[in-house]
Design a protein around this nucleic acid. Sequence first.
DNA 1: TAATCCATGAACAGATCATGGATTGGTCTG
DNA 2: CAGACCAATCCATGATCTGTTCATGGATTA
Lengths: 230, 230
Amino acid sequence: MSGTAPHILVIDDEQQILRALRTILGQHQYQVTTARNGEEGLALAAAVQPDVIILDLGLPDMSGIEVCQRLREWADMPIIILSAHDTEPEKVAALDAGADDYLTKPFGVEELMARVRVALRHRSRSSSSKSSLITAGNVTIDLAAHLVTKNGQPVKLTATEYRLLAYLAGNAGRVLTHQAILNHVWGYAEDSQMEYLRVYIRQLRQKLEDDPRNPQLILTESGVGYRLMT
Amino acid sequence: MSGTAPHILVIDDEQQILRALRTILGQHQYQVTTARNGEEGLALAAAVQPDVIILDLGLPDMSGIEVCQRLREWADMPIIILSAHDTEPEKVAALDAGADDYLTKPFGVEELMARVRVALRHRSRSSSSKSSLITAGNVTIDLAAHLVTKNGQPVKLTATEYRLLAYLAGNAGRVLTHQAILNHVWGYAEDSQMEYLRVYIRQLRQKLEDDPRNPQLILTESGVGYRLMT
DNA sequence: TAATCCATGAACAGATCATGGATTGGTCTG
DNA sequence: CAGACCAATCCATGATCTGTTCATGGATTA
């Protein structure tokens, strides 16, 4: 938490705004990722796990409301909506779809920054309760340091492997459905993607289990999903 | 939700707005308390511990910013600011003073209600992380974790076994008819399906009863259905 | 006692899963 | 720029698990 700069994902199709936001946010010491449409936005949200999402309502491929709803199926990071429209029904719809704030263009840059700070405040308040260090068996996962060790030895994980493990660890002891995992790690869930999940579960077991053939850490719940033992 | 209606504290010195908000919030099933100045507002906030505070910036005795700051010394409930001024520096100051949202008068009533809902969402998200546990005999069912334990030992159940047990547990002590169970667990009820029910009841007994031949947990009500003992 | 209703054990088929490896695509490096 | 490297994505195959079904004997009810 204290270590790295907060990461902000901006989903907007207007190059001009995208560049401006990237500059401003960068000046405020934020790490920035940008997406140009809804599909890309959903995938990146899952991939980078940003601390805050800034979402333009007017996207080319799908409505901002829909992006919001699909994010909320699995994600709980704050979402700040930007919109060219100032109508009340649209605001209400966006906020009820899961958005946390709504700014109408043109907006003041400093106001946006203040609202980003509010969002970050929320996030740290709600996530500070759980420690970022998770232990399961002889494996420890330090979410803040982005580091996984087994018996004290660092384990090399790829980005996807880490995201999967982090999600499992964040809900240790609980069964996570295939759907939920796919949404959270890959950003979308289709039946065909189930194969990926199997492959990555296997790789994690290979790297973390004492006896990969007899998993003690990552258990299969047939027909449902997977569970990381506490 | 189940418990009581959310409690909202409105701090404003204009009688007219106060009355209007009281009416509107009441119509939305919120419990409302009102204060006419900053001092009273601070005292009431401590006294009633509201779920959300709506705060007008233009108070007679002290600035809204100051109220905000003094609230934040000990309180963490969401604060929504109302203001007649639309200047950016004022917005930034209020948000950085600890406010969660800022609306400029005149504002749409539905927008305010939507933002109240957002604030309540935040509050419930950060405080609700309890798992719902059901106990029956020496067996406990954790619905959130999708986990069943007997004497503390985890028990492996298939998806169908779990659905059946969860349904029984959700109506513990009550007799559930064959029809009802089939409908709930299999989605439809035909006489031919009764065999499934028998088989699965048996498997649950096998896994959960101390002496499967003498069921103490899952009792047969001949000709009617089954009952899970409390 | 006769007629239902229920419990038991086991067997089969299809769904679900694990595994090893092949292929693709991007990034880094000499 | 070519080649090496690594991660992500696919594919084929065999193992395991689950739902379903059947036959039989015990328990309960009328």
